[in-house]
């Protein structure tokens, strides 16, 4: 499909790159500017100073380490549990036939479309009744539920591309079904599991609204909620905010670059085949 390059396309590409990339550039350069440079009413595109003080300031700001710790705990618990449950469920959808399968699949898809801001009302009332608001367990449980449909669906996609012959051979050779799944299918699923785990990690790491509503006290914030709290009625500390933003983005950028190819083709693959 590639054609000879044209000047128009190349120039547009450069412009698009500058426009799309500028906000990221502006975040990173601001995070290394000194206070005077950040708070200048005549900002310049090229930075005039270089310092780590915004990072020191952000790290020493109240709540950074606690919210970092909270984020890590919630995310790791969420990823572990949702992947564990999703592996079983995806094998059921991709490898077996059962009454109610169609309804189960429909439910998985429709649930992903429910607007979070609509569900949060009854969800908050439910968690209040279960006394799970403002607890890490409550937030992790909620994340598992929200991430599960997606992880099951993605793993199903990976499983669909693994030929059934190998497990069947194992069954013929006298393996029990559990053995066939564990020793034959599971290792083949490994790359899919890693990609799905990373994607679940990113989703949970970035989530804002649920954490904002469920975790109310200062010592229970996650990183995004902590970030949103930089603006108070007295103003915003822009330099440290940009430093903290950069730090929050780094793990996602690293993980994301590892799996982005799979995501891009994963979304469209179903469409082309279907």
């Amino acid at each position: 499909m590639h054609k000879r390059s044209s000047i128009y396309a190349n120039l547009s590409g450069l412009f698009a790159m500058i426009f799309m990339g500028f906000p990221v550039y502006w975040m990173v350069t601001t995070s290394f500017k000194n206070r005077q440079d950040v708070l200048s009413t005549e900002p310049t595109i090229l930075p005039r100073s270089f310092t780590f003080e915004n990072y020191q300031n952000a790290f020493s700001r109240e709540g950074f380490y606690t919210s970092l710790r909270n984020s890590l705990i919630v995310v790791l618990v969420t990823v572990a549990i949702s992947l564990f449950l999703a592996t079983f469920a995806s094998v059921a959808i991709a490898r077996t036939k059962f009454t109610g399968k169609r309804s189960f699949i429909s439910a998985l898809l429709i649930v992903q479309m429910l607007p979070l801001s609509a569900l949060i009302i009854p969800l908050f009332l439910l968690l209040t009744r279960l006394q799970l608001t403002n607890t890490i367990g409550g937030l992790a449980l909620t994340y598992v539920a929200f991430i599960l449909p997606f992880t099951i669906w993605t793993l199903r996609g990976f499983l669909a591309n693994i030929p059934t012959d190998i497990e069947e051979a194992a069954l013929v050779d006298g393996c029990t079904r559990v053995q066939a799944y564990r020793h034959v299918l599971l290792p083949l699923m490994a790359p899919g599991l890693v990609a799905t785990a990373i994607f679940a990690f990113i989703q949970a790491w970035n989530e804002f609204l649920l954490a904002y509503i469920i975790m109310q006290s200062q010592e229970n914030l996650t990183l995004p909620v902590w970030l949103a709290g930089f603006t108070t009625r007295t103003g915003t500390d822009w330099g440290p905010l940009m430093a903290a933003s950069t730090v929050t983005a780094i793990p996602v950028v690293i993980f994301f670059s590892l799996i982005q190819k799979r995501i891009a083709t994963g979304v469209t693959a179903g469409a082309v085949k279907g």
Binding site: P23, V253, Q260
Partner: peptide
């Protein structure tokens, strides 16, 4: 890909700053 990877809340903070 870089922009895609930026967490929503980080993106919002940058635009708020810009």
């Amino acid at each position: 890909i870089l922009v895609w990877a930026i967490p929503a809340l980080v993106g919002i903070s940058i635009w708020k700053w810009m």
